[in-house]
Amino acid sequence: MPANVAALALGDDALVLSHRLGEWAGHAPVLEEEVALANIALDLLGQARVLLSLAGDEDELAYLREERAFRNLQLVEQPNGDFAHTIARQLYFSTYQTLLYGQLASGESELAPLAAKAVKEVTYHQDHAEQWTLRLGDGTAESHERMRRGLDALWRFTGEMFQPVDGIDVDFEALRESWTASVTAVIERATLSVPDGPQSGAWTAGAGRQGLHTEPFGRMLAEMQHLHRSHPGASW
């Protein structure tokens, strides 16, 4: 069922990144960012719920699958780190989501209506990440250095975004080109350089999509699923 594979992959991306952003609640550097990060997390959670419901029962899928059954990109499961690290992750992912959903929205697939709604949200997320990349990159010496470190640290997880996914009828090579052009433009305006390392490693190319994740992910799931799993069959 290619449509399920696609819904699960994109749904897991949104679910996992939403969870990571939810961890910021009460810890953001300024009150406006408490609102903005929660807002983005909520948009993503809304997307996840629609997508997972296309593939099955949203709560069963979120709470009762183990790590090896999740299909999200390794990028979105990376821990928040500092604010620059979170923004780098968001810039890479929102740019991808905006381009991907833009194409899906104009297609004929089952995902088109969801993508049409979500593209408005992810465009806002991309703008938010872009604005902060500029402020941190072209702010103070410290923020410049932190933004550089965030972009560098996450670069090796970006290649996975362009691995084809069953049921997503998109030209992934063209997607890679548009993504690279868009991200490069923002990074350069932010007075930074595009990281020069590889975009994947021995275990990273297409790994998350195949259920191979990084170590912090299991701990994230343990926290997310604990209560639900402690009360089998209960409704909330």
Binding site: L15, H19, G22, E23, A25, A38, A41, L42, L45, G46, A48, R49, L52, E58, D59, A62, Y63, E223, M224, H226, L227, H228, H231, A234, S235, W236
Partner: peptide, 15 residues
């Protein structure tokens, strides 16, 4: 937030 037992409750709590 990170332990909410259903996605619906999690969304309500985040909001």
């Amino acid at each position: 937030i990170t332990r909410a037992p259903s996605l619906r409750r999690k969304a309500i709590l985040m909001a």
